[in-house]
Simulated assay, not measured.
Amino acid sequence: MLPAAARLTSSADFRLVTRGGRRAGRTRLVVHAVAGPADPEADPGSPRVGFVVSKAVGNSVVRHRVSRRLRHLVRDRLGTLPPGSALVVRALPRAAEATSAELGADLDAALRKLRLSSGDES
């Protein structure tokens, strides 16, 4: 589970990140990101993450399974994200058949493309 301080919850925050941020698409997911705080009143020290898993991914059981996998993967990477950043991870229909390792590889590739991984030197 993600800590409460690390969650995007309001539709305004989701809208700000998806419309105003950068985007990196992969086979199974799309990651939208804003490097600075999405909400000016938010704690700039903690990255925040939200998830979008639509009905196109599958029925409720499949959607919740994909959401749990993505939450777990992002939780392990929270420490590598820049302070004050905000992410929205949107699952695509192919995420339904993906393993956690495949979702993790797509997430890592998207974060590298957005240059949000702490290991990037470029």
Results as ranks from 00 to 15, higher is better:
R77V: 10
A4P: 01
L2M: 05
L16P: 00
P3I: 10
A86P: 06
V62R: 13
V57M: 05
A42H: 12
K55W: 03
S60E: 08
V34K: 14
R94F: 03
G36Y: 01
R115I: 02
G119H: 15
R65E: 02
V62A: 10
T80W: 09
D120Q: 13
G25H: 07
G21R: 11
H64R: 15
G50R: 12
L81Q: 06
D106F: 13
H64I: 05
V30D: 05
D106P: 02
G104L: 08
A86H: 10
S85R: 11
P47A: 01
G79K: 15
R115S: 03
G20D: 09
S54V: 11
R75A: 14
P82H: 09
L81A: 01
G20A: 09
V53T: 06
S122R: 15
L29Y: 03
H32I: 02
P37Q: 12
T99Q: 12
M1C: 05
V53C: 09
L8G: 04
T99M: 12
R71H: 07
L107D: 07
E102S: 06
G20F: 12
R90N: 09
R63V: 03
T9N: 04
G20C: 09
R22W: 00
T99S: 15
K113S: 12
L2A: 06
R90W: 09
L116I: 02
G84A: 08
R22P: 00
S85L: 04
V52N: 03
T99G: 15
S67I: 00
D39C: 03
L16K: 14
R48I: 00
E41L: 14
D76L: 12
V74S: 10
P40I: 04
R112Q: 03
V30L: 09
H72F: 04
V49N: 01
L2V: 07
L92V: 08
R15A: 13
G58P: 08
V66P: 03
R115D: 05
R71Y: 01
E41V: 07
R26H: 02
L73W: 11
L16S: 13
R65L: 05
T18N: 06
A101P: 03
E41P: 03
S10D: 04
L87H: 01
A105S: 14
D108M: 09
L103V: 08
S118Q: 13
R69S: 10
T27E: 15
P82G: 05
V31S: 10
V61E: 03
V52C: 05
R94N: 10
E97L: 13
K113P: 00
P44L: 08
G45P: 12
V52W: 02
R77K: 14
